[in-house]
């Protein structure tokens, strides 16, 4: 299982792997929003938590269709399905690799972008914390969507349509943590709920993802 994780990470880092694209997208959104909204620090500070979370979510979405599509095209997925590891393990490792190359990178880069968005000082820690706790759920849910649409022509657009409604709870609690943190209110409740969603999704969704993969491979 570790071998699969290492291979996926290596593929992500090498040329054409798409690592960094999500980060660049995250950066571009953080630049475009002030250009559209106007430079007033007050306004930006108010919308910063929501914009940063929506941007992170969209950046995650960008690379979802690559999770299984490449392995499906070159036949690796068939071979992995006959390998001595359960498909549930395969999808978990795939989600983990996706999170490390996108979610974790976004989490680490987020304070810089928060600076551009004029996030109040108290919010920085909670921004990083909420992304660290919430983005794994985005990867796991996205892996489920990718498993549903693997092998479909023009699956990418459909994937977004399927996954975005599933992202609603994560987005709400994640942005709420940052908003409350920035305003100096108690953040424990939304942070725990966010963690609950991540834990629940990570525990249960791999079974659904593996089932969807099996259906798609037959």
């Amino acid at each position: 299982m570790i071998a699969l994780l290492v291979r996926d990470l290596r593929l992500g880092m090498r040329a054409g792997g798409g690592f960094g694209l999500g980060l660049a997208f995250f950066l571009i959104v953080a630049v475009l929003v002030p250009l559209g909204v106007g430079p007033e620090g007050q306004t930006l500070a108010k919308i910063a938590p929501g914009i940063l979370w929506v941007a992170a979510l969209l950046a995650c979405l960008l690379s979802l269709d690559r999770i299984f599509a490449l392995d499906f095209e070159d036949g690796s997925l068939d071979l992995l399905a006959t390998a001595p590891m359960p498909l549930e393990g395969v999808v978990t490792m795939k989600a983990l690799a996706h999170w490390i190359t996108t979610g974790l990178a976004l989490t680490l880069a987020s304070p810089v972008l928060a600076l551009l968005m004029n996030l109040p000082g108290a919010g920085y820690g909670w921004l990083v914390a909420s992304l660290a706790v919430g983005t794994p759920a985005l990867s796991v849910i996205g892996t489920f969507g990718a498993a549903l649409t693997v092998g479909l022509k023009r699956g990418g657009l459909l994937l977004s349509l399927l996954v975005l409604p599933l992202y609603v709870p994560t987005l709400i609690f994640g942005a709420e943590v940052v908003r409350r943190g920035a305003e100096g209110q108690a953040v424990l409740t939304p942070l725990l709920l966010l963690g609950g969603i991540t834990a629940g999704a990570a525990a249960l969704l791999p079974f659904a993802s593996a089932a969807a993969l099996r259906i798609n491979l037959r």
Binding site: V168, P169, I172, F173, E176, L193, I197
Partner: peptide, 10 residues
């Protein structure tokens, strides 16, 4: 269902 509760919370 999760969204329903999240939205109520929001």
């Amino acid at each position: 269902i999760l969204s329903r509760y999240a939205v109520n919370f929001w």
